[in-house]
Design a protein around this nucleic acid. Structure first.
Lengths: 122, 122
DNA sequence: GCTTGACTTAGAGCTAACTCTAGCACTTAT
DNA sequence: ATAAGTGCTAGAGTTAGCTCTAAGTCAAGC
């Protein structure tokens, strides 16, 4: 799969894909004779995973940490799980904050209040 | 309320509070004779609101848009509501992406899979 | 009366995550 | 066989949102 196809499929720019390789988040993308990237199934699976996690706000740093362990081989499975658990916990905490803000936005929208009115759990 | 107290109360740095004023997100913070900030109830309420919305990922830009309308007065209430609705919708969309990622992280954690294994809805 | 510590400003610096530029190669359609 | 389109690299530039620095003022304690 050529880069433009991967871009379309996962809605990600070519610049970003090349950037991910430059920083080592994505490695070993196969090349055709003329030097062009030719993404295989594993590369695509990683791109898709990274896309999903990035769109949930996981940092490049945490994903690189995870992928570094992955590229090291099976001996790192326990450590990888730890990374995932840590990121899951961070994500859950963020979800909590967001849900609080969402409720508050909905309250304000339904029941418009400025900061001047008396509080009823504003 | 002096700046250090506001920092402690809302877990926000003094630099950030001053930055918010610099960019016009927060205005009209009262000063004592010697020129020090002395936050009143309205300033505190705004700080608290901004803190909550920032921790849910709303942009400074959108909050500034909202606050600009607020500082313009009551004639902007309808517009303010529009801003809130737009941000609420963006937040909901983000929550959806995050919940997808959260489920996936939980699946991976409970049922560890690398990218090499056959997919079962990985 | 001097030191310590909290406040002030303007403006520079930092980090994450891209995004763009320049300059070149290769392929494909006309 | 030439122009358009897509790919490549290295490296510079951008944006959001702080965060830090320098240089100064002021109040309180020893």
């Amino acid at each position: 799969m050529i880069i433009s196809e991967v871009c379309k499929k996962y809605e990600i720019t070519a610049d970003t894909l090349r950037y991910y390789e430059k920083i080592g988040l994505l490695r070993d993308v196969p090349r055709s004779q003329n030097g062009q990237r030719d993404y295989d199934d594993l590369s695509c699976a990683i791109v898709e995973f990274v896309k999903c996690m990035r769109s949930a706000g996981l940092s490049i740093e945490s994903l690189t940490e995870y992928m570094n362990l992955f590229y090291e081989g099976d001996s790192t499975i326990a450590k990888r799980k730890e990374v995932l658990i840590k990121q899951r916990d961070l994500l859950e905490a963020r979800l909590k904050d967001e849900m609080k803000a969402l409720e508050r936005l909905n309250y304000k929208i339904d029941n418009y209040e400025t900061f001047n009115e008396k509080k009823r759990g504003n």
